[in-house]
Design a protein around this nucleic acid. Structure first.
Lengths: 187, 187, 187, 187
DNA sequence: CATGAATGAGCATTCATTCAT
DNA sequence: TATGAATGAATGCTCATTCAT
């Protein structure tokens, strides 16, 4: 049948199920069944369940996030314009990985036990450091943290608004930029 | 030993573990072991694992949230001042339940399978409806959603800031009020 | 049905199967099936498969062997008579645990991965030290090692001879004592 | 790379692992990995796992043992001198196959399920028949059995003595001959 | 109020093996 | 000669739950 793309198909189905039912609740049996293959086939492509989820992170968010971080590091000192551009770039990069972001957001407890969880946390933390000033007042730290969370959560909430994904993304970016601007003025 | 308060002790330990390790990863065996009782003892006090987690929600957040909602419903039409007071009251009520809020926030995927999850979602949605205007622009909807999330997440993030819980809560409330004010002006 | 003795029954069946089919080849399913209980029932009584085999060693050979070792340590310096008495006592103590000894002997590769294997090895080594002289010639070391092995293996070999277990044990003890005597004279 | 000798290399690695970790615990995956080939490659050279282990026996011990047996059958009636020569020849022939002997000795339970196990057992039994007198007393049967075991086990025990393999082999042979001599006199 | 003993269903993982290429 | 991809069956183990005592 299909050749060579099995690995990809596993990742697709896995992400869908992980996002829908949660990491712990999703068994490899379910993934295999939905794909029409055996559990053992999954193990041919991924060493463990953790390995599978790790590959999803690496392919979908870790790389892109690193690019944003790299770009930011090459544009120091970090002016307000730079900060806004960071938000803009980050927004763009996560918009291609909506299910992943949702999964990340809604399974933080589960991810804490996975080594990839730390890895991702580190990225978020680094972005936060770039966006907020070192000695920012507490309220400004809250603003910056909130800016990041807002961009994440807007991707998969506001379903009732009936807005298109791209519109939601832009609205979230706007709010995030407002928050960071306010934090910047606060110095 | 201790008499009569076993139910309470189970809830305490359960919440602690649920918040720390996640709902799915926390087994009744662990809870029982940490309490020094048998698994069967838990079943004397709670019919199921879901029953246990439900009781936590009811005792710690559902009731308080309902009070805020009731108060809000008695103060219509909802002026900006009312909205800010809603935020203030909600902030106060969740501040007594930090681990619960963290648990809620980090286990959304797991909670989705639990009936209590819907219940909680309904409260959040109702609060959101009270805070945002019916025909608010998308960006204002984002602002209001973000306001609520900010208050939640500030309770258990910003650990590195070294700030006291109460300070963090106030800072989050301030940011939330700003966001809602901006959304209100937007009309 | 039967109460309180389930643990014992598990041990009995487990030892029988371990000795017959080998440690690795014997699955907990088989043990459970033969007992008419669920696999999970085994786990109520023993934490792991290793735990189960460990309990067998502790109950059947470790304790008895330690008694012989203790007795030997209280009878120093170790004269030839003492050595012969050690053999005699050891022979008596293992004769109550024939299947265990066979299991031990025929599953050394498997036991090497189990922590109880080391424990047992230590006992054998200690007995050997007590039986052979410190600076014994190589050939005498072989004699002493052989004496121990002979007592072990005679318990479950020589099936074709049609001899009664007790006769075999005595014959093995005799040969073992001869070997140790020869080693002793060798000084 | 290497050509034509892959079969040999598989055997080498397999024996090493079988001896070290045991037959059951050694998976074909491990063998393949250590060789840097695929599991499927093993199946090109050996029909099954049992086939692989069988080939090891045939190449390393079955043939040599048969030679000893053949020689013995041509020197009847079996005088004491003949018996001692049998031991000597057998000792020499197994000394080239130390890991195999160790494997055989420590995996008896596992081998019992393999048809090659019977085959080997038959050789040992035949040797025993040649070495002991038909109507030997029980104690003499023990002596002869022990003689054989001693030669086997001396190959891989007595590690702490620091003796060279060849010395150990000679010492074991000496003890074995003593035992058989004693059994012979016993008539 | 609580335990001891057990179950049934499930899980992640591993294994020997197969087969088209 | 070998590999890439897969399977079916099994394994050790854990979990939420039950129930007689």
């Amino acid at each position: 049948m299909s050749r060579g793309n099995t690995r990809q198909r596993i990742q697709d189905v896995a992400l869908e199920l992980f996002a829908e039912r949660g990491y712990e609740k999703t068994s490899l049996r379910e993934i295999a069944e939905q794909l029409g293959v055996t559990k053992a086939a999954l193990y041919y492509h991924f060493k463990t369940k953790e390995d599978l989820v790790t590959s999803l992170f690496e392919d979908l968010v870790l790389g892109p996030a690193d690019e944003v971080i790299d770009w930011a590091r090459q544009h120091r000192p970090t002016t307000l314009e730079t900060k806004l551009e960071i938000l803009s770039r980050y927004s763009a990069c996560i918009s291609h990985a909506t299910p992943m972001v949702r999964f990340m957001h809604e399974n933080q407890a589960a991810l804490r036990e996975l080594s990839i969880g730390d890895e991702m946390k580190r990225r978020i933390f680094t972005l936060l450091e770039l966006i907020k000033d070192e000695d920012a007042a507490l309220v400004d730290q809250v603003r910056c943290t909130s800016a990041l969370f807002t961009m994440h959560s807007a991707l998969f909430t506001l379903d009732s608004s009936g807005a298109a994904p791209e519109e939601k993304r832009k609205a979230a970016l706007e709010v995030a930029q407002e928050l960071v601007s306010a934090a910047h003025h606060g110095e």
